[in-house]
Every structure is written in C-alpha cells, then in structure tokens.
Design a protein around this nucleic acid. Structure first.
Lengths: 229, 229
DNA sequence: TCAAAAGTGTTCCTTCTACACCCATGT
DNA sequence: ACATGGGTGTAGAAGGAACACTTTTGA
C-alpha cells in the first residue's frame, strides 16, 4: 500500500499558471562492465552527466546528446527512469533521469571521455537527488535482469558464457549455478554460438557467443514510442 | 535494441541555461472498476485530470492534489509513470504522468466529482501526448497485474473471488481458469476469508474475502522514497 | 425442477534447483 | 603433472495449465 502524506488541499480549481516555468535537468546514469565489476560514470565535480534540453529537443534526444558529449559515443541502450523534483529557495528543478548502458568494446578506440568510472556500489552521490537517481538506476537494472535481455548491452559483441554469467552475478550480487545459467541462456534462443574460441589463460579456451538480435524484449514496460512528439 | 535517431550533437559543453523554464503538467490517469469493466476518468473537455505543481510542491503531492480535486477523494494507489515532453511554437511543456487507482466503494458517498468515467479501452484522447499517456498507463497496469497485488486496489474492501477474477480478466483481456485462479490467489497468502457471504442472484452466495494488508509488493520497480526531497 | 454462479482436485507437463566430474590448455 | 577455468547431465521439487462435476440459492 503506497501511502502518501497529506498535503494541504488546493483551494482554487483550474490550472494555476505559475509565473515562471521550472528548470529542467536531464541526467543519465551510465553503466559499463569493466570486465570485473559494474561501474558508473561521473562527470565534472562528481555529478552524474547531465544537461538541459535545448528548445524543441525531445527529452530522449537530450539524453543521447548528454551521453555523446560525455562519453564520446552512443550508448547501447537508453531508457527513461524516473522524474524527481527538487525545490528550495523558491526555485524548482525537475530532474528527469535516464539509464544508459555501454558495451566495453565500444570504448576501445580511446576516445577522450570526460568521465570517471567507479564501481557502481561505491559511487558517491553529490546530493540527495543524485543519490536517489543512482540507487534507483541500479534497482531498475537489477530488476530488469530478471525478465529482459538487458545484460547483453553490457557485454562485448562476442563474449563467453562465463563472462555473461559474471555480469549477472555481479549486478545481482549473488552467485549462480553454471549449468543452470548456461541452459537457461541457450534455451532462451537469444544466443548464437560463433565458431571462434578465446584463450584466456592456462586452461581450456571458451566458445564465443553472439547476441542474436531478433526478439529483444528488453524494452517492455517502457513506452514503445521512442521520442516524444 | 532501443534505437534512438540521430540528433545534431551539441556544440558547446557545460549546462546551457535556457532563458525561460518549461511549463510543467502533472496528469493522472485514474482507473476504477465499474463492477463490469475497467474505466478511466476524463475531466473538463475530455482532458486527463491535470494541474501544474505549486511552488515547492513535490510532484507526488501534486498528483494527490489533482486526484482530490477532481475525484473528491484520495486514490488507493498512486504511482508515477513516465515523463513526456511536447514542444512547438517555441514553447515546451513537460508532462509527468501518474497512475491512480480507486476502489469502487470509496465512491459510495456520492461526492460531486467533476469526472466522466468511460471504458478504458474506448477512452478518446484529446491529443497525441494524452493518447500515449493513456496507452502507457494501461500497459503498465496490465504488466503489474502479473507480478504485483495491484489489482486489490481496484476492488472493494470486501469482495468475492469471482469479482477479483473478473477484474483480472477484464484488464488482461483474456479469460482465466477459475480453479487455478483461486488456488493461486489463496496460495499467495494475501487474502483473508471473512465469515460473510454475499447473495447476488438466484444462485449460491459467495464467500467474501478481504485483502490482508501485510506484504504488499505492489510498489517495487518504483522508488521506495515517497516524496521528493 | 431449472437456471446460474459458487466452489472444489487431480493429472500432466514444464520449469527450476541442486549437485560432481571430465576436458583442454599453459606452465 | 598440475592448476585453471570450460564444459556437460540427471533427478527431484515446484509451479502452471487443462479439465468436469457437485452445491446452494431464487424463481
């Protein structure tokens, strides 16, 4: 039962036209898989990458632009999360948060990013709203692992099943059974086995898989309409 | 794979401080169960109930205020959905959509509502954004039926299992097996059987149940923080 | 006595879970 | 030869889906 506290009820009816509008902030929680752990990005002075939308620019386009500016490349996956508001001193700011995922091999070109990547669990937020945004982004990412293919956006274009399993384990914070994990993934039909292997150390090489793009069901529970009209 | 179309990338860096802020609209898609079908509410001239937040008012409080003003009472359940933006003619409006659910017996007092209730499937939207808001609200409601107890917020405080089943069937648009439905509901442990029955026609009376409040898991995937700071 | 909704169990099948050993390689 | 992670199968439990008849009431 969601409980909302009482708030003095409005006296007038009909839209109250506030004198001035509110400042908008679109911010994007970026995640990548370092190969070992999940990382989030912070920009200058520890803030989550953000900007204000340009006039006429849809919010989703703002999120993409922010990602491009700070990371130098497009994210694999972008999704709107939640909208917060902060107010104080007569000023209001609306904070529209987005989630962005990167595959690690998209960074190989050595772009000059203005980002600092830190372990997702240890990321320090600069204020309460950013803390909530970060927390919620992680919660949503965890929840979506359960019923979507979202983890594939965090993995290079070819990958081993152990790599994929490590991504799941690390995000969910719990170990998984290797045989059950592999069976489930293969049964889901979204994997294509390549004929390549990867030697990784003094042990048997691993088969490389590819994500077979069709029937990606990462995006339900999000409006199917990409950009606002 | 969510594809975002290209948008001219930003030239400058650092926050662009737009001259004027944007207009904010909080709108609430209200659902109730008429006893036969799912209905949504529209206010004056066919619009979804809406208002602009007061200065310093958190968005969730605005949603509650809108509900109270238009429906005369508080909703059983309120949840933020998605934030859209509409722009044109140099003006931007940010539309933050909420979902609100009513139990039918909360209306019994004959409040003067300024709402028109129409079948959810047949509701006509006044513009593209409202159409998206309505569609998305229904999609989310349907999705949440699968993994939460959200349907209990649409049902009177005591109800029969057949009633509850009709709610599910009507929202999901498909019939369910009576025995499996009842077994699942009872096994979930969220039902308490009252010692009352209801005679409803020329047939056997039905047992009345109550929703046992504890362990309501309707609200995950939504930030646990009720109001913005 | 009939119509109409309430209520009730079992079987089958699919899916999840737990669990242990051999394989290919580098050193 | 040994250390290291890659790769595989099976049995039991739990959960979901399909399915039909008896009960209680009002007319």
């Amino acid at each position: 039962m969601v409980q909302y506290h009482d708030v003095p009820s409005a006296e007038g009816s009909g839209p109250v036209d506030e004198a001035a509008g509110s400042a908008l902030r679109v911010c994007v929680v970026l995640f990548r898989w370092s190969g070992t752990e999940l990382e989030t990005a912070t920009g200058e002075s520890g803030h989550i990458p953000w900007d204000r939308p340009h006039p006429e620019e849809p919010l989703g386009a703002t999120a993409e632009r922010i990602i491009r500016r700070w990371a130098g490349i497009d994210a694999e996956y972008v999704e709107q999360l939640y909208t917060f508001s902060r107010s104080g001193g007569g000023q209001r700011e609306i904070v529209i948060s987005y989630l962005g995922l990167f595959a690690p091999d998209t960074f190989d070109e050595g772009q000059r990013q203005s980002l600092t990547w830190t372990p997702a669990a240890a990321t320090q937020a600069v204020d309460d709203v950013e803390r909530m945004v970060l927390e919620y982004a992680l919660v949503r990412l965890q929840a979506k692992l359960g019923y979507t293919n979202i983890a594939f956006h965090l993995v290079p274009s070819t990958f081993t099943l152990s790599e994929l399993q490590h991504v799941y384990e690390s995000i969910l914070g719990q170990p998984m059974d290797k045989r059950n994990f592999r069976r489930r993934m293969i049964a889901s039909g979204i994997l294509t086995k390549t004929d390549q292997t990867r030697r990784d150390g003094s042990h048997r090489p691993a088969m490389l898989y590819r994500f077979s793009e069709q029937d990606d069901h990462t995006s339900y529970l999000t409006p199917p309409w990409q950009s606002e009209p």
